[in-house]
């Protein structure tokens, strides 16, 4: 077997050796931590995705060892390959921070900010992005763009008003199903995800569009308004499924299975696709072999108060963040009683 050539790339002064052909974003993910640019449209499992949202823009301050010239414009790190000796600046670049703030503002411009009634709240990538990079107030004073809600068949609801046009659901349908029936219609700020004429999405793998959606535009109708994700307890489980891997996360309240999703990695990406039967029809604990509680990042609101033997972290907030000051602009605990420790006792 031919040896894979590796190249060296330096991102925010951290050097890493990666296989040739790796994107800057993937190289940053290999380093991990703060140097990883946020990604709202890129999805490593979906071919052709990325490049659109512009949140992962980075500055290439040195092109490569062979051609050290910097790249004049910021580049989408998800779609730019690394070169040997390349130097990239992400959080160490003021240009990047400025551009990213702009992108976040653009993404939120027409977003309804209806988090209190949105099922995605708590696991929404736009919410996270907004907390980390957004401002406390909008400069947009005009009427926001709105759309009617649509049922895409019995399982999926499309709430286009929340959509940021990442195209992930389109790629998912293209790559997982044999017949795509939804797509992007119209153009510019009129562009929307739709089926054109009322059509149902019923392919056995189409439920995955819910998992890839970074916001609450595509939600699971069998779970809508049943609960808030941070009240539910994610449990890793599997079953013998004839059409998919059967490896899932069950979201339970007590013994009740409220929701089934694919398992997600630390970047919020699905590890393996699951079928609609596993996702929508297997809602009894007895349908599944339970493996144990799923790992949820301590930074996530979902981790709040799930576990029986929860140990309060001893480190201070600053210590957890390696000495940096917290980036949160708003203290979640102070504004929402749902995170009140006394409220979780019933289980």
């Amino acid at each position: 077997m031919a040896e894979v050539k590796t190249v060296k790339v330096t991102i925010d002064n951290i050097t890493v050796e990666v296989p040739q052909g790796t994107s800057i974003l993937q190289a940053a993910r290999m380093i991990g931590g703060d140097v990883v640019p946020p990604a709202m449209c890129y999805y490593s499992k979906l071919e052709g995705s990325g490049g659109k949202c512009r949140t992962c823009l980075v500055e290439v301050s040195k092109g490569s060892e062979a051609d050290p010239r910097p790249m004049p414009k910021l580049v989408a790190s998800c779609r730019t390959g690394v070169m040997d000796g390349m130097e990239v600046r992400n959080i160490t670049s003021d240009r990047v921070k400025d551009a990213r703030n702009g992108v976040v503002e653009f993404l939120l411009l027409n977003h309804p900010l209806d988090c209190p009634i949105c099922d995605q709240a708590g696991e929404c990538h736009l919410q996270d992005l907004g907390y980390e990079h957004g401002k406390e107030a909008t400069r947009y004073e005009f009427k926001r763009r709105t759309f009617e809600k649509h049922d895409l068949g019995p399982y999926i609801q499309l709430h286009m008003t929340r959509c940021i046009l990442c195209y992930r659901c389109v790629y998912t349908a293209d790559q997982l199903t044999e017949k795509r029936v939804h797509g992007v219609l119209s153009r510019g700020d009129y562009a929307e995800i739709a089926t054109y004429i009322e059509k149902s999405l019923d392919n056995n793998f189409i439920g995955n569009v819910i998992d890839v959606c970074p916001v609450g535009a595509l939600t699971d109708k069998t779970f809508r308004f049943k609960n808030r994700v941070w009240f539910t307890k994610p449990v890793t489980a599997h079953r013998d499924c004839s059409s998919c891997c059967g490896k899932v996360t069950l979201w339970q309240r007590g013994e009740e299975v409220l929701r089934v999703t694919a398992r997600k990695d630390q970047w919020g990406e699905v590890e393996e696709w699951i079928c609609n039967v596993c996702r929508f029809d297997k809602k009894k604990t007895s349908d599944w072999t339970i493996e144990g509680p799923s790992h949820v990042s301590r930074h996530s609101v979902i981790s709040q108060g799930h576990y029986e033997h929860l140990v309060q972290p001893k480190e201070t907030f600053t210590a957890v963040h390696d000495g940096r000051h917290p980036q949160l602009l708003m203290d979640i605990h102070s504004v929402s009683e749902v995170n009140d420790k006394t409220a979780k006792t019933k289980s």
Binding site: F106, L109, N110, L165, S186, G188, D189
Partner: peptide, 21 residues
């Protein structure tokens, strides 16, 4: 330019309409 934006990337899709308004 707002009318002619393809709508693919966020700065152009959202920014052109904002400038027009």
């Amino acid at each position: 330019y707002r009318h002619e934006s393809c709508g693919q990337c966020s700065p152009c899709r959202e920014g052109t309409g904002w400038m027009e308004k």
